[in-house]
Structures are given as structure tokens and as C-alpha cells.
Design a protein around this nucleic acid. Structure first.
Lengths: 101, 101
DNA sequence: CCCCTTTATCGTATAAAAGCGATAAAGGGG
DNA sequence: CCCCTTTATCGCTTTTATACGATAAAGGGG
């Protein structure tokens, strides 16, 4: 069964995108940071980081587009939380993955 | 707890490296391809792929360095297999990760 | 309505990844 | 010993990711 005959099933694509997003150490740590706080403002994440605000905003966008986090408007700020449902899905997929191992 | 105070624990670093390696769709598919065959020659993977042999070799190197596969010399060729032990470790880590989700 | 705070986006520069062809290395067969 | 097969590595180019400062957008307070 060749790899390139068909593009990649949608759920596989989604899984690979999540893994790619998490493969960056900064983003990985942002997710863990959020997990330890059950949601917080972008500014808090920027403060916890050696990076510029615009850079952090880019990373948050990647995490958002991968479905790992989501933000809710809270006054003039945005409160980011882990997307528990999608993260559960990710963990389930990995749990089922490669049953032989 | 700031993100940048300390580099990243060794096991977290290892986990992020594995996720990064798997985040590339081609490498993701190579792993699944190997899972469906319990080991095969580089040439088989090249053939299953739209890529040049040198490119596939690079991807195999990334997967090897992430500990996801390992190769054994088999005559003039090399037989690649999934590294079941490390993949189990990865799955365990993800299973334990973010217990709140 | 203006200003301040907060976040996203734009433009741009640099670093890293991904791809290829050519070449080297290593093993087996004659 | 030479040649053929197989894989890795090198040099190079193109694409993508990462980072920053500057600017725009959007909400709340006075």
C-alpha cells in the first residue's frame, strides 16, 4: 500500500497537525502552562515567556488552529483555555494508535 | 511558574522531539507503513513514496534520532522496524499527559 | 468621544526544514 | 578484485517556520 496514492485521511491529517503544533517546545510548554491554570490571559503567557507578544500570539494561533486551545473574549482581553474535548480526542487516537506496540 | 526559567526536562524534550518527528505527514505515514509490515527495507519505503531516495533517507534519520524506528543491517540493505519500546513509552506519556482532559 | 489596555496582524529578516541530484560507503556475488 | 546493489551523506536550492517591531482592531473607563 503506497503512501502517496491518496492524500491522508482527514482524521490522520488532523492528528498530524496536532502533533506538529505540539512538537514545538514553546507551544508544548504553553499547553502545559495553561493546564496548570485552567485558562488565562494572553498577557500572562507572554509574561511567562522570553518571547515578544507578537510571537506568542503567533504560537497561540497555531495552537488554536490545531484545536488544542480556544479563546474567549473577556473584556478587552482574551482568556485562553485548553480545548479539553479535542485533547481527549488526541489522547484517544494516540492510545489506539499502533496497537502492536 | 514561568516557561523560560529552565530549559525543559529531559523527558519533556524527548517527548517534544518525538511529536515533532511525527508532525510531518510523510514521516507519520512512514511509521504507519512500517506498522503494517513489521519491518522492511529502505527501498520499499522509497517505492511507496513520491520522494527521492535521499529525501526518504533524511526522514528515516529523523525518525531514527527521535527513537521511533531503528534499522538493522541485512546484507547490503537495512531493515527498518518500529521501536516498540520507545513507542510504548510515547503512548504512555501521552496517556498520562494533562490528566484533567 | 478620546484614551488606555490588550491582542491580532502585517511586513520583514533570519533560521530551520524539506527537497533533489551527485557522490561516497559498505556488503555480497561473480 | 571488480562490479552491482543498497543506503547514507554532501552541497545546493526552495519552502516553511520562527522571531521581531510596528501598526491596526476592539473593548472599557473616564
Amino acid at each position: 500500500m503506497a503512501i502517496h496514492r491518496q492524500p491522508l485521511q482527514p482524521d490522520r491529517k488532523r492528528l498530524a497537525a496536532m502533533l506538529k503544533a505540539l512538537g514545538n517546545p514553546i507551544r508544548f510548554q504553553i499547553v502545559e502552562f495553561l493546564a496548570g491554570r485552567r485558562g488565562c490571559i494572553t498577557a500572562d503567557i507572554v509574561e511567562a515567556t522570553p518571547l515578544a507578544q507578537s510571537t506568542v500570539s503567533q504560537h497561540l494561533k497555531v495552537l488554536r488552529e490545531a484545536g488544542l486551545i480556544h479563546g474567549e473574549i473577556e473584556g478587552p482581553a482574551i482568556c485562553y483555555c485548553l480545548d479539553a474535548e479535542n485533547i481527549r480526542w488526541l489522547k484517544e487516537q494516540i492510545g489506539r494508535w499502533l496497537p502492536g506496540c
